[in-house]
Nucleic acid binder design. Structure first.
Lengths: 280, 280
DNA sequence: GAAAAGATGTAGTATTACTACATGTTGGGT
DNA sequence: ACCCAACATGTAGTAATACTACATCTTTTC
């Protein structure tokens, strides 16, 4: 539908083109508006809106709203459009969520190229997991630690520069060190990764594959970071990192078998007994 | 949508149930009909049709047609399959990511029913934002605080019981209190929400719509929590909560206009100057 | 430069969603 | 058995919304 409108843009008259452009810019909003509202937003009259619908081969405004909601809930509407200052609240929120979906769909197609087998094998025999990240990635690290800890292995999250640097120095061959970063260009992370690896630790990087951090790691989960050209666009990379660690968590649990399953079950039971502490 | 109708079938009265059943049987037809036509097909009256819509939590018949076209044009190919112990590592990872995608796709279809407009209006004029959550939701709260803080308003994240209880007592009319919880059944959160609201604070709940926490809040972002039947399945609700807060963040930024855009741009610039502190 | 063809908006109509209220129905208490 | 209350349902009316007829203005053409 939106494609058809775009294609017909040329052969429309002035007023009709105004309507068409506004519809393309705010499709979601159209579905919740009346003819009068659209006319006002386009600085034109109601009949022009109706005429636009007819010109598109529709029976009227009602059919336009139906066709648009169809188009918006189809998967091919997942063309990522940046949020702009002119967007309505509804348009903006949809765009944000669609961007998140898109990045996870991309992730799925890259899963098979990620070194899950190898990493899981090493994690299953290691003694502790340490997750590290700065800024927004720090929250991802904390979340991961909170999650893996339920497998029954000692876990830690490091979210500040000195701690990360220190652990790089003391990490040993029985440790798994997971470093999370969007760009992977923070020197602290690269240095910590290098030292830990020199000490015999298994170093995993969840980051941009072209980065220095990736080069310093034993295994890399490559998460391409598309540029944030728009200041309003939030970083979907965080969601991707979380999903990667979710997948790794489940894969590790399967590898650990009964031992992990038991611990998971017990930790879930513990929450049920005392809902006051649940909250999750 | 159709699932929700099916689920509510029991608690409907006779006339309403007639409507519900006809809608389930002829969903496509509803989208092209008028209230009168549906009423006639169900051998009942127009008000009963309207009442049915209201009972389903919709604003009226118009919204029903929109929700139905959405439901009908969304391919439910992404049927979520649980991870089982027999899965290979590759299978398991794909399932985990697909479950995450599915939950975000569901979220998108529910966005239009969420009170973004109202909440944003209130947030734009408030003095500080406080985010709270326990366990896994605590990390979501921290992440949200870290994100909203870049808009230039004071932010805080509370992730333990005493802090949350205390803030509930001291929150005032210029505060926005955002409580995040999967089930919403932690008494601490409900009590804190209630007290804060009594004190005049604006209380937002990101949680299960049927929960006590939701009932105690000023505005609710309803995130249905499907059961975790399988211990290996991670909780996608966390991703959904993050996405909701992302959307709210962007919407708020748009509402604040130049002021927020300026702060966002400056905070991004600050990271560029010193990549050592970036990490995100 | 005038007339014709087309585009656009004003004002009005018909349709449609929705509401107020009166009537019927069921369940519980005395 | 009776009454009352609460709830469910439909009738009739209202407000809104989509759509149309026509007059005005613009552009094109000879």
């Amino acid at each position: 539908m939106l494609g058809e409108i775009n294609q017909s843009l040329e052969r429309l008259s002035r007023a009709e083109k105004q309507v068409a452009e506004w519809v393309l810019a705010h499709p979601r909003q159209v579905t919740e508006s009346t003819v009068a509202e659209v006319a006002r937003a386009c600085a034109t009259s109601e009949p022009s809106v109706i005429r636009f619908c007819r010109r598109m081969g529709l029976s009227g405004f009602r059919e336009l709203t139906i066709r648009l909601t169809e188009a918006l809930s189809r998967p091919d509407s997942l063309v990522h459009r940046d949020v702009s200052a002119a967007d309505s609240t509804a348009d903006a929120t949809v765009k944000v969520v669609e961007a998140a979906i898109q990045s996870l769909v991309d992730l799925r197609s890259q899963l098979s190229r990620m070194p899950f087998e190898r990493v899981v094998a090493r994690m299953a025999t290691s003694q502790q997991f340490v997750f590290a990240g700065l800024g927004a990635s720090g929250h991802v690290a904390s979340d991961a630690s909170h999650k893996f800890f339920r497998l029954g292995k000692p876990c830690n999250a490091l979210t500040d520069t000195p701690s990360i640097r220190q652990f790089g120095a003391i990490a040993g061959s029985r440790d798994v060190f997971v470093l999370i970063s969007k760009n992977g260009d923070a020197p602290v992370l690269r240095e910590a990764a290098r030292r830990a690896r020199d000490n015999g630790a298994f170093v995993i990087a969840v980051t941009n594959p072209g980065s220095e951090l990736a080069a310093a790691a034993s295994s890399v989960f490559a998460c391409d970071s598309q540029e944030d050209t728009n200041i309003y666009t939030p970083r979907s990379s965080r969601l991707v990192h979380l999903a990667v660690l979710d997948a790794l968590h489940v894969a590790t649990a399967l590898a650990l078998g009964d031992f992990a399953a038991d611990n998971l079950r017990r930790s879930k039971d513990a929450l049920l007994v005392d809902p006051g502490a649940a909250g999750g």
